[in-house]
Nucleic acid binder design. Sequence first.
RNA 1: UCCGGCGUAGCUCAACGGUAGAGCGGGUGGCUGUUAACCACUAGGUUACAGGUUCGAGUCCUGUCGCCGGAGCCA
Length: 435
Amino acid sequence: MYVLIKDLPQHIGQEVTLRGWLYNKRGHKKLRFLILRDGTGLCQAVCFRPDLDEAAWNAADQATQETSLEVTGVVNPVDEEHHAPGGVELAVGSVRLVQVPADDYPITPKEHGVDFLMRNRHLWLRSQRQWHLIRLRNEVIFALRKFYYDRGFVCFDSPILTGAIGESAGSLFELEYFDLGSAYLAQTGQLYQEAAIMAHRNTFCFGPTFRAEKSKTRKHLTEFWMLEAEMAYCSHDESLQLQEDMVVYVVRWCLEQCGDALAEVGRDLAPLERAAEGRFERLLYRDAVKLLQKKGSDIQFGEDLGAPEETILGAEFDRPVFVCNYPRAVKAFYMKRNPDDPETVLCADLIATEDHGEIIGGSAREDDIDLLMERIAQEGLPAESYEWYLDLRRYGSVPHAGFGLGLERLVKYVGGLPHIREACCFPRMMEKLYP
RNA sequence: UCCGGCGUAGCUCAACGGUAGAGCGGGUGGCUGUUAACCACUAGGUUACAGGUUCGAGUCCUGUCGCCGGAGCCA
């Protein structure tokens, strides 16, 4: 009977067959411990020579790291002191090799450098830490989709190939598009979400986005997944509440569902448990500048927050913090002018704790067509390209708001990861296109 | 793009300007309960590349390439 390792505790005393790969091997003359991996977990398979026929023993002997194989044996419980993974082990009766690698498996049970591991990302994925991180990412994705589905949001996927539209033209991947000149890989799906909500009220898109910026930091990818939510008849404050609820929901979900993964990567749970309580501070940009100056930063009103400022703020609060209402000049043209403080716009960035930095950026959108056209002109953007976008203000414009969440940044934060590359399946960075 | 750092065995790293080494992985042998198993033996090198200084360069200098970290930009 073929069984998955995760289901072994339900088969104690039975003879089962595991199909997987050899993760590691230890042994004596008459006793071999095969650590098997089958994609659902790890299992120790014990080969005791007198219990195996010659062929099976030789097979166990020949299996090297990452040999694919089938192992049949009886499932036994394991006492505390031997602590095998999963609390069970397999008393092996027979072994069948599927494929034995001709060359040594490159990733050994010792330490490796980042460059080497990234070049072997396709194999690195099999390692325990990476396996758990992809599981964590999977749970974050599921929690996000469930959060929006439960609230009646419609998944409306924005196009990935676009004309020259977006926040800025300096960081777009450009490609030839038949006879229509250049197309660009989308940097954001937001403008399309604004069209979508006029049809569906509340929508989100969740897909890859592309930034051609030559960033070399632990927070940047050139290809990353972004969830962008947009809500019609929604105030800025209501948007902030939704963002907070979303982060709280995901963090709680992961605390409940991903204990193994969080333990595997050594995540300090205390900051997550505080975040799971909600009550994120909403700090005005004006106050943030004063606070930062008090903490030794030489930031002036009117300047955007840089990485050092994010670090200070991340350390100042014990849970994620919203920085609200930035000066108009440093933010995108579509953000709504703050009626109470016209120098600023109604927007917010969510800064995570422990130097994980910005994980959400959002705003109320300018719904007044005249103000919007004024801003498009100020930014020197090609007005023709935005005609359809302006139509959204011409035909039943309503107050609305939305935000974008960086998936890998959220996974990095939840997992407490030192670098964003581990939050992504095959990270794309400036110097990384292989594998 | 800018600033800083690094490049030595398949991998991770040592080596004062003076004979290139260890651990892991591989191979051979030993061991009936291992936990990144252990013990013994063994193979494995154009010290990133190109110049230069020096009696002598892995080490110092110049250039190129590659990578890492940070900045800007952002999620």
